[in-house]
Write a protein that binds this DNA or RNA. Structure first.
Lengths: 351, 351
DNA sequence: AAATACAATTATATCGATCTAACATGCAAA
DNA sequence: TTTGCATGTTAGATCGATATAATTGTATTT
């Protein structure tokens, strides 16, 4: 439609934006009236509304949310700080958050803290400077405490997800890690397993501690005590780390008959390590995960895991944050979603 | 440090933000001077600067980037539209984009278009309303053309990545898909393969078409013609689709000795299908991918693939966009990154 | 000594929207 | 006729920053 100049398709930046003033002039009303129309106010008659709408279309006006934010002293931008975007689980949470926020005309700025405290602080400051109305935070380590302090100071509500920190005025949403792990252990015991190992994440994180606790409780539930050398923790939560830890476990001799892993990603790493040592996961050693990411059902063997619906967690986090933004006096919520055991091939054989 | 009221940790939203006016009053200078100080202008003497800095610290002032954006008529926000965040490759690109932009004090808003045209249009509008200075776009289908038109109209520069669209005033960065696939085929032929199959993505996308072309050219390079039934395309680019397509290929009988896949994710899906049918990938059938996502090296067999450094692509895209924002008269760039073959176990056995 | 230059600071208008209070209307009630 | 009230519209101040041009005070030149 637009008549491009010949030669290269280089249109100079049409820098003069159409504003409400232009619309008002074109429709022969005041700027105030035009403003009321774009906000669908019913103070304005149908006739005037139609006239203004026509001008908007004629001039190609686009609303300037940033200018409105400045005046109204509230913003339609939310911030999201992800611990590790390369974990598909977090990517799904992010996707859920964004889609829910988008439906309420919010935009979401994001940043990857890469598990680093200084980076996280920088990000929080940049987000505050950019006037976010609220923040989604998946804390890395304990470093996040001072950032939560700061957010509280400037009055920006926040929602933590997956990992939480005690004593802060922030909502939290995450799975019942203890119940999930106990269900996993119960299932393995039912399959006849007694010598069960655990490959966990860093215990500094709430989720790392809770899943370990859940595993140990689950063992106690059935009068079992894991061998010390069968319970390991890795510093970073990814396939590589689990791969290495599992190789070490296997090479030490006398391995467990079942291996409970912190999450699906680490279960995959562990299974790959078993295959590398000539073992068949699910047959020689049972394996379980946590998260139920899309990949789990495809694996051979398909992975027994705990489903917690990542996208839904994202949407719930979004709703919780939006609720607190609307009504800041509302106390923070604490939402624990119930885990669901999905038994698949990786724990199918009875021992 | 902050003395919280007893009972619940509910601090009422401290809504009165500290502004430059407050700082100026506290430091007994004008707002203009304070403004120059926060922008590190050297017009101001060291002494005055120090005085203002002290006031900033004393009052806990935070800069309001949004207000500054309004006045300067430029913004420090960029938009990013991802085709599918659950693909770790895109997650890495996103991470690279964000980290580079963060270093230049930009924030990045993002949204997942979920391969849907209407959603993409809504997102573009929301981004324009929120005054983004530029947009990163990985187009889904051809639907993106009208959105590019619109961006051009309002003078917002954009950078496409991974997939491009002809005839638009947008920079593009992506891998040399044809060269990559030819290298893959050459490698397989060298290993003794002649009957080579291809599991591709939707040909509507530039990348889908280019990788298919590269495969076919590679075959021609060695005087080979693939069998028609060995060249398949799937509608969605993920493990599931490749898993299904590969099962069908195997069940049809007389499968190829090597299978070239559109990307790593699909290669994993294909390998899982082979395992499910009792075959050993890399031994019974060679498999190759494209992207070299972190998981590839861990697999058993580890995956032969084309490395294109996703995070680096993200950073390059960011630099290209920032350059055009600084200097809008600069013509769009077209950057093609050279692919690098990483030969691993999945194609190790010689036939 | 007057003119000029320069450095440091500041008053005021401005970005694009919303909010408050005021202003015309027209119509019902006193 | 006057008052009151509801309805639709509008002028002008405002959000928190930056840009422009003006204003100081001091040093340099002629």
């Amino acid at each position: 439609m637009s008549d491009k100049p010949p030669g290269r398709g280089l249109s100079r930046p049409q820098r003069s934006r159409v504003t409400l003033d232009d619309v008002a002039a074109h429709a022969e009303v005041s700027r105030s009236t035009a403003s009321l129309v774009v906000r669908n106010s019913k103070l304005i008659t149908a006739e005037t509304t139609k006239k203004v709408r026509r001008s908007i279309a004629a001039l190609g006006y686009t609303y300037n949310q940033a200018a409105a934010n400045l005046r109204t002293q509230r913003s339609k931008t939310l911030g999201m700080i992800i611990a590790d975007l390369s974990n598909p689980f977090y990517a799904l949470v992010a996707s859920g958050i964004e889609s829910e926020c988008g439906q309420h005309r919010y935009v979401t700025v994001f940043a990857d803290a890469r598990e680093d405290a200084d980076t996280q602080t920088m990000i929080v400051n940049r987000f505050i400077e950019n006037d976010v109305a609220g923040i989604f935070l998946c804390p890395s380590g304990n470093d996040s405490a001072q950032n939560l302090d700061r957010l509280q100071e400037v009055g920006i509500p926040s929602v933590l997800f997956m990992r939480h920190i005690q004593g802060y005025d922030a909502s939290y949403i995450g799975p019942d890690n203890v119940a999930g792990m106990r269900a996993v252990v119960a299932h393995l015991v039912e399959q006849g397993h007694r010598r069960i190992g655990f490959v966990g994440g860093p215990p500094k994180r709430s989720s790392g501690q809770e899943r370990l606790d859940g595993f140990l409780q689950g063992m106690r539930d059935h009068g079992l005590t894991p061998r010390a050398e069968h319970v390991v923790a890795v510093p970073t939560i990814d396939r590589q780390a689990a791969h290495g830890a599992c190789l070490a476990l296997l090479d030490a001799g006398d391995p467990p008959t079942a291996l409970v892993c912190y999450n699906d990603l680490m279960a995959f790493g562990a299974m790959l390590a078993m295959i590398r040592r000539g073992l068949t996961p699910g047959k020689d050693i049972a394996v379980t995960g946590f998260d139920d990411i899309p990949e789990s059902v495809l694996w051979t063997p398909s992975l027994t895991t705990i489903s917690i619906d990542a996208e839904n967690i994202g949407r719930m986090a979004a709703r919780a944050l939006l609720a607190r933004i609307e009504n800041p006096d509302q106390p923070p919520e604490r939402m624990i979603v119930a885990p669901r055991l999905i038994a698949r091939e990786s724990s199918a054989r009875r021992f």
